[in-house]
Design a protein around this nucleic acid. Structure first.
Lengths: 346, 346
DNA sequence: AGGCTCTACTAAACCGGTTCAGTTGGTAGA
DNA sequence: TCTACCAACTGAACCGGTTTAGTAGAGCCT
């Protein structure tokens, strides 16, 4: 329908091949001819057909991202939109596009990867939310789909990783609380199925151990708000209940803080709380949340670049380490209560 | 690299054409032959190449969505992730994929649409965040790119719209506040450049007029949290400051409520507050936010279906109306204060 | 002058599908 | 028995690029 390479060739009085060489900056045409062809192409408003290009060069000029989340969780996590924006910044510079799949139903995730791979819709994918012994590693290997993972999987993975350490942030949070005099510091973890759920828990354990404190106040949740409530309730029910809780993400911290307040506890008077992610709304909570400020946009930018490098063979093969996120102290953390612990009112 | 239609044809002892007919359910092959071909194709693990299919049938089998937002705002709006999930649900049923573009820099938006159109990367796009006299309508017309708009643009648009009325929700919020005895009900609007910013403002004005109340407590903001703070500050500075504020979205309501509290006002004792969207975190605010519960996922599902219908010519050409979102009363709204107005403490 | 190499280009094959124009064989109708 | 027609299939063109093999002509060397 639009103007094709043949039209340009005809108008410039050369063959299709010459036009292709000229437009791709390849040798095989004189500078004079190249200039004329480019001129004609511009005049005719020629735009290369991605489809034709893809067919002959066996590339899709697209990267894939499969997000497997509960729809409820999707709208709340501030990570993805910023992360995707970062990916786009990189892709826009390379005439690639992003194909996004959202898998909400169980089993839909594997189907989504297969769909992207089978038809050759994408040239590679970015793997987020890496899980313990993640089955997707094997799947992608089987599908022969190049990939980049966010953080290094605990299972053997042939794919380069782009990592943002979460140890430092959690450690800083725990040390901040210890400096405030807290001793019984609990941790509400994300699903331990995720490696970032695990690493944050381990970071909390290590920091506690280094300070000679017992890391026994742990409750596992699932990164969701209701999960945060349940886990917080569990910790507060303990006879030796914590005076501070380090949450594995902002959403759980938000709902946990809200729950504690509804039980008559003052934050941070009776309970200090820290989050993770620095979602924008956390600064408008009452009190504003002490949290750990990550940079998802940068993560997206770098991950996309690593994948592109891998596709054109210029990737070093080594993992990339991003600067660790830092602690952002706000008003949800304060000195440990000096009085004897009083049970939370039921 | 993979198995092609020629491989299947050879293995089944027929021509490429016959295989194509068989696999697409077209007439021209006997049932016996068709069965044999399908059998062979399955055995060989044949998957059609999207690229080849796209080239010969002049389709991309993909829909586009361009999101033009400030990166800061992106992470906070609960609308998009759920909306995109809805789109995916529909697309997954039709072997289409979603190409997502995020345009953060000014001017990037138009480039993004051109990029999607030029190479033939997508067969159509969904237009969100429709603006007053939206220039994208003309652009898409020029690019000959089929589209569906979310809500009907105020400028002349040839594209079908999928609408979710926001009048009812805002009206319900205002009436709820009036029933609680409020008289001075303000409105913090979103950017009036957006048609949903305008329609929410008009809905507030109409509801006030119907109750015989003056609609003079308006402050325009931009749907962002800092904007909500500024607009709230402006309204509270007025001598006849409002006892209730209807916000055009949750993010502004959240930051506005937080700001009012920081000024020593009690919510809802001194000031009642309503939001719009029902972002999950709003139920964990202190107090939980009265807001309007929309259904972005359904919107995405229906919009994608409308676009697909349009592409294969089965669209009626009429706009689709979705059920209006409803008011969700929580604790941020309460009876109007009976005492004389005291100035907010500075 | 003949042979050689190099540049600049053309013609055609190719990617993997769809689709159109024929071809074949069988059956029905006269 | 001859024609007409139809179902079932084949071969080739086609989509719009890339890429390979081949060629014409210029320039250089001996």
């Amino acid at each position: 329908m639009a103007v094709t390479i043949s039209d340009v060739a005809h108008a410039a009085g050369v063959s299709k091949g010459a036009v292709s060489y000229a437009l791709n900056g390849q040798p095989g045409v004189s500078d004079a001819t190249r200039g004329r062809i480019l001129q004609v192409a511009k005049e005719l408003g020629w735009k290369p057909s991605l489809r034709a290009k893809g067919l002959s060069s066996a590339k899709a000029y697209a990267l894939g991202l499969v997000v497997a989340r509960d729809p409820k969780l999707l709208g709340t996590d501030p990570f993805f939109p910023a992360f995707i924006a970062g990916i786009e910044i990189t892709l826009a510079e390379h005439d690639y596009t992003l194909v996004l799949s959202v898998a909400t139903a169980p089993g839909a995730e594997e189907r989504a990867y297969r769909k992207l791979a089978d038809g050759g819709r994408v040239d590679g994918v970015i793997l987020t939310d890496v899980r313990h012994n993640d089955s997707r590693i094997g799947l992608l290997r089987e599908l022969k789909l190049p990939a980049v993972t966010l953080n290094r999987p605990d299972a053997d993975s042939p794919f380069p990783a782009v990592s943002m350490d979460d140890t430092d942030g959690i450690t800083a949070a725990v040390e901040h609380l210890i400096a405030l005099g807290h001793v019984r510091i609990g941790h509400v973890g994300g699903a331990q199925e995720y490696i970032h759920g695990r690493s944050r828990r381990r970071a909390w354990e290590s920091a506690m151990a280094r300070a000679g404190l017992a890391a026994d106040l742990f409750a596992e949740a699932d990164f969701t708000a209701p999960g945060g409530v349940a886990a917080t309730a569990e910790l507060l029910r303990r006879p030796d209940r914590p005076t501070a809780i380090v949450y594995a993400n902002d959403l759980m911290a938000t709902s946990g803080q809200s729950f504690a307040q509804s039980q008559g506890l003052s934050v941070p008077g009776d309970l200090s709380v820290t989050g993770y992610d620095n979602a924008e709304f956390t600064q408008y909570l009452n009190p504003p949340l002490t949290t750990i400020a990550t940079d998802p946009m940068r993560w997206g930018r770098v991950a996309a670049q690593a994948l592109l490098d891998q596709l054109n063979g210029t990737h070093s093969g080594e993992d990339t380490d991003l600067p660790a996120p830092t602690l952002l102290v706000r008003a949800s953390t304060g000195p440990a209560p000096s009085r004897t612990i009083k049970q939370a009112t039921k």
